[in-house]
Design a protein around this nucleic acid. Structure first.
Length: 354
DNA sequence: AATCCGGGGGT
DNA sequence: ACCCCAGGATT
């Protein structure tokens, strides 16, 4: 295994000419640039660039500096994250901002050790932040880089079977300078040219030395990931309306999936379908009517089938003083971090407009 | 080493 | 339908 200047130099020169104008690439010399890179790295974990862009713009507009973020309420962060998924990232980002303000004089740290001590920043993100934000020599091996290296060097098999080899080669390929550009160049190359399926080898600046291209096996590397079976779960959601405009929502437990987000009060998610039972209902009511909407909300690892029961709430009745529950006016619902599933349910019933 | 954690875009 | 995505934390 050798150093490969051809690899890094060609990618950098290609990147200079073809790089996308992405919002987190602006104002490299601004004092808030490292903070913005950090935010983008949290958002981009397992999430496509086109999905992230509007969220990033909104987030930076609302919290332009790390100090402003550190002062924010978690509920507002979750609201800004709504629909983006992997909500733990949002809560970890807030924790990291607080930690940076408390421990590092409100400046994003520059060492791998300090960066990895922050919640939500692991091996990849620490390297990405070091190279992109500070232009330090640091490797950042994401899914794109793994695929590019596997094809270029001809590592057969699945990516997870070549973890060590890929990381070693990634270190060898890492140039001594222009690391800000190089790190983004490899990932950009994977995203735009050396793509998962329909590759664009015709415009690839690496093809003349690419093992897979020369051997016509680009479409065979990498081998697909092993897939695990999706769980099929079921739940009942309860829609209560008071005066036709206030809906009863419940805050999910902090450490559960979709933690701390609001939703229509629901049963637990079970393998067997629930039989309707008044004891499951969030509030007492004479009539609970099953609505004619059954849908399956698809998570990456769960297919959740949900049925909905409706009741008009007696406005004279009070909630048992429990701040997990809240009557929320439908017009204010966009001010709360509500699960995508519940938003889609309310939208389906024409109670809100997504 | 596996599994949990979302949701959307591309094919 | 199925795959993938600028991964990290937990077990």
């Amino acid at each position: 295994m050798k150093k490969d200047q051809f690899f890094s130099e060609n990618l950098i020169s290609w990147y200079k000419k073809n790089k996308r104008n992405l919002p987190w690439r602006k104002n490299v010399n601004d004092e808030n640039y490292p903070y913005k890179v950090m935010v983008s790295e949290f958002m981009l974990q397992q999430t496509g660039v086109s999905t992230v862009i509007p969220y990033f713009e909104n987030f930076i507009n609302r919290w332009p500096t790390i100090v402003s973020l550190a002062c924010a309420r978690e509920e507002d962060i979750l609201l800004a994250w709504q629909g983006l998924g992997y909500y733990r990232r949002a809560r970890n980002l807030l924790k990291s901002a607080k930690q940076i303000c408390n421990q590092y004089d409100s400046k994003v740290p520059t060492s791998l050790e300090e960066l990895q001590s922050l919640p939500g920043i692991g091996v990849y993100a620490s390297g990405a932040i070091r190279s992109i934000a500070f232009d330090k020599k640091a490797v950042a091996v994401d899914g794109n880089v793994k695929r590019v290296l596997a094809r270029y060097y001809g590592f057969s098999g699945r990516l997870d079977q070549n973890e060590k080899l890929i990381n070693e080669q990634a270190s060898k390929c890492c140039p001594d300078k222009s690391n800000r550009q190089y790190t983004q160049a490899v990932m950009e190359h994977g995203a735009l040219v050396c793509t998962p399926k329909v590759t664009k080898c015709g415009v690839c600046v690496l093809s003349s030395k690419c093992y897979s291209y020369k051997n016509k096996i680009v479409d065979q590397i990498p081998e697909p990931k092993l897939k695990t079976k999706k769980q099929k779960l079921n739940c009942i959601s309860f829609l209560s309306l008071k005066g036709d405009r206030e809906v009863l929502l419940k805050k999910r437990p902090k450490n559960a999936i979709l933690g701390n987000q609001w939703e229509l009060p629901s049963t637990n998610w079970s393998k067997t379908k629930h039989k309707f039972d008044k004891n499951l209902c969030p509030i007492p009511s004479k009539h609970w009517n099953k609505l004619d909407i059954n849908f399956t909300h698809k998570f990456s690892h769960i297919d959740l089938s949900c049925s909905v029961y409706f009741s008009d709430a007696d406005s004279s009745k009070k909630l048992s003083s429990n701040d997990e529950y809240k009557w929320i006016n439908l017009k204010d619902i966009s001010n709360y971090p509500v699960t995508t599933m519940s938003l889609k349910t309310l939208n389906e019933l024409n109670l809100i407009q997504i």
